[in-house]
Simulated scan of single mutants.
Amino acid sequence: MERWRIIKAFTLGSLLEAAIPKPGNVNRYVDFEDLTLYHFIFAETWIIDILHEATKIGDQLRRGTYRLNEAGIGELIKRAVQNTREVQDANPNFGIVALQIPLVIALSMSRNMLEARDCVRRLLDESTVRDTMELYRAIRIANPKGIPSGVKYDVYSDDSFRELFRDGINLKRLAEISCERELIFCEWLNGYELSYKTFARLYELTKEMTLEEAVQGAFVELLAENTDTLIVRKAGKEEAELVKERAREVLEGRLTLEEFDAFLRGKKDLRNPGSLADIMTIALGLFVLKGYRLTREP
């Protein structure tokens, strides 16, 4: 697929996700105390060069100049995180970057969007222990909230790199170990199933409503059907289940979108559905890549 089209689509998708008012998230109307819309704008714009490099690697893989195990997914993720730190002081996009990089490479080496799903799986199969080590370095730089300590292959343990090397833990193996506690890894393993499903839902909804309305509707559906792992890490499983229940009430008409938003913000950012917001970001990138064109309202 055409490289610059991919870059533009995923950059715009990221900015749209941050700007559109979705319940519980930073948007153009509401900030958190330590995270604003500007953090997203600065961070996402500052990784364009890394997305461009990812498309170049995908093109080389398609041509056979590189082998799959030379893709360098972990290093690209680390460098993207370093870029975001150059221009702002928060962690607005680690999950987005971790999802974007493998998919952008896969799209660049594929004939179409569906073929890319299989390419992602092959990239992860052939990833290396070094990729995992570089991912760990990226996590340490980004310092996401709620990362557990004391677990096997602890990100912040000085022994983790030796253990990863000893056990041969590449990105696929890490994802298998960590899928239960982080949605990003599940997406890696299942070929971005939820992201593609959400993209298809956006395509369907925008036939009858505005892009903003479609994103809001699809996002509530995401929250009603899936557990947000960021909420689990920050606030616990009970809170995450409560968020799902409230989202179902919105779909059933027993709770307004405004009431749901107020509920999510009732404990500052503890109920912020960040993992599923990352899914929406990728879905919007795919949606733009498919050819969505903004038109003036009649």
Rank of each mutant, 00 (worst) to 15 (best):
L103N: 05
E241T: 03
D158H: 13
F40Y: 15
N83W: 01
G74P: 05
G58T: 02
Q88D: 05
E53R: 13
A175G: 13
I41P: 04
D158W: 11
F199Q: 04
L255E: 10
S14Y: 02
D154W: 01
A98S: 15
I139N: 01
V220D: 04
L12N: 15
V26M: 06
E221I: 15
C186A: 09
T256N: 07
K197T: 15
R162N: 04
G64Y: 01
P23V: 08
N93D: 12
E258K: 11
G74T: 13
A142D: 08
K268T: 14
T11I: 15
I147H: 02
I6H: 02
A235I: 09
W46Q: 12
L51C: 05
S157M: 06
E238Q: 15
S110T: 01
S195F: 05
L35P: 06
R79N: 13
C119N: 14
G266V: 11
E75K: 14
K234A: 08
P144H: 00
F40V: 08
G236K: 11
L189C: 07
E17F: 06
E212R: 09
F161Y: 12
T11G: 14
W46V: 02
L51I: 13
E33S: 11
Y136R: 05
D49V: 04
R254G: 00
L202A: 10
E2S: 08
L124H: 04
E238G: 02
K145A: 14
Q100H: 14
I57C: 09
N25V: 12
E225W: 06
L251W: 03
R79Y: 12
V129T: 14
A106G: 05
P273I: 00
Y203K: 14
D125Y: 09
H52L: 13
V243A: 05
R79E: 14
L135D: 00
L164S: 01
D34M: 00
G24D: 03
W4A: 00
H39R: 03
I57M: 06
D89W: 02
E2F: 03
F10A: 05
L284Y: 01
R166T: 07
L194T: 15
L211T: 05
E212P: 09
A247L: 08
T11S: 14
I169W: 00
R296Y: 12
R67M: 08
G72K: 06
A9N: 09
G13L: 07
Q82R: 11
P21A: 07
C119K: 12
A175V: 12
S178I: 10
E115W: 06
D34F: 00
L51Y: 15
G285A: 09
N27C: 14
E86R: 12
S195P: 03
V97P: 07
G266W: 05
E258S: 12
G236D: 04
I169D: 04
T281G: 10
L51R: 09
R28I: 15
G168M: 00
R233D: 02
R271P: 03
L230W: 07
H39P: 03
E213C: 10
E86Y: 10
A98C: 12
N226Q: 13
K152S: 00
I147R: 04
E33N: 11
V232P: 06
K197M: 15
E208Q: 11
E297D: 08
E115H: 07
S275N: 03
M209Q: 13
K244A: 10
P21S: 10
